[in-house]
Design a protein around this nucleic acid. Sequence first.
DNA 1: ACATAGTCATAACACTTGTTATGCGAATGG
DNA 2: CCATTCGCATAACAAGTGTTATGACTATGT
Lengths: 221, 221
Amino acid sequence: MPRTKGDHEARRRDVSEAVWRVLAAHGFGGLTLRAVATELGATTGLLTHYFPAKRDLVAHALDVLEQRSASRPRRAAGPGLPAVRAALLDILPLTAEATDANRIWVSSWDVALADPALSGDHARRYAQSRGKLRDLVATAQELGELPAGDPELIAAGAQSFALGLVVQALFAPASFPPQRQVELLDDYLASLASPRAAMSPASPSSSRGEDPAPPGRHPGR
Amino acid sequence: MPRTKGDHEARRRDVSEAVWRVLAAHGFGGLTLRAVATELGATTGLLTHYFPAKRDLVAHALDVLEQRSASRPRRAAGPGLPAVRAALLDILPLTAEATDANRIWVSSWDVALADPALSGDHARRYAQSRGKLRDLVATAQELGELPAGDPELIAAGAQSFALGLVVQALFAPASFPPQRQVELLDDYLASLASPRAAMSPASPSSSRGEDPAPPGRHPGR
DNA sequence: ACATAGTCATAACACTTGTTATGCGAATGG
DNA sequence: CCATTCGCATAACAAGTGTTATGACTATGT
């Protein structure tokens, strides 16, 4: 009965890719049915035929994002610190596709922060990613490639570093070419790997509100 | 002639604060003239009286954001590493106001990435902030509180770390309370301060060893 | 007191948005 | 070969958007 045979799923994928392209170009603020339709060379009638409402459309687009992020070729690396490095490199916008994905990701933060449900989804996603990173950090510590310390804390720090680097690279790609991103990441990992001077494990800020003395190690004074 | 005397500027500030509140609550995606008007207990006629177009309104709101960021009480800290720490602490969402500001900031990334002009503004802003940070890092190095190394690179890394921590804290405030943010930052600074070996200790992957990701062109498309 | 000018509500405007209804064509099943 | 069903363009729809008059109100200057 259809004009072309079993293309229902394939057509849905086409639509999702058009959504992807619109998102990469104009972000969520510029995501409209008309924009997707023209990007696809069709009309809104086609879109509503496959997705009853815009909500379903963006949901499927976000599924595509997550699926792409999950199924993209991960870097292979031996256990320990190289695995940590590979996981972080996989986050950075080192290629055109990774740049698009990260750009969409950042764009989704606006709508996500406005909606508690979506906000929770993002938080959960980051927590999961952090969990994986923590395991990698732990094995690296067991191998003696990273100094002791709460792996959860180290993973959170590493993820923060990578996330911030993503944002900076998106806004100033000329100042943060792939090579520079890798350089920054490797410097960060090197500083992590170097044995840390002894500092009091208990945070001195627990008693006072916040903003206590300068960092742990006081060279002079 | 006016209903109340010299309140022109004061009224503009009122409007800007209403814009601020709407942005903090719903982000740029939820910023409409009606929303601002009801938030202010007025109508759109008032808004257009003080700001001819929405463009001017959001521009002024962003000016307010920048002005607030610039004029907020900065942490005082002696030169060297404490100054670096203070500058980074000033970025983090440690208070309710700082959280609002950062939430608006993140929200603006969506619209900024869609508009090259705004994108350039943001890039310039971050570059400037990075420049200041670099100077602080340099003096800390002169004081021997930080090991040698390109201060520009160190500043970029520190900014990335703070930025990413902001994002994480916004999405999972329960997992990243102020105390934890400070703890993470101090850990990061401690690892920076510790003298870095030449990457020999037990790290098989040299800094420029393998890199599956070819440094191809980045943005394009 | 009167004219004037700033303040702002009211309301209409042109436009875009997501959604829905209608209908035409094509491919298939009987 | 005809009826049916899917694919999709066309177009109308209501709601919401930014923008633009219009006019009433009020405090001020003279």
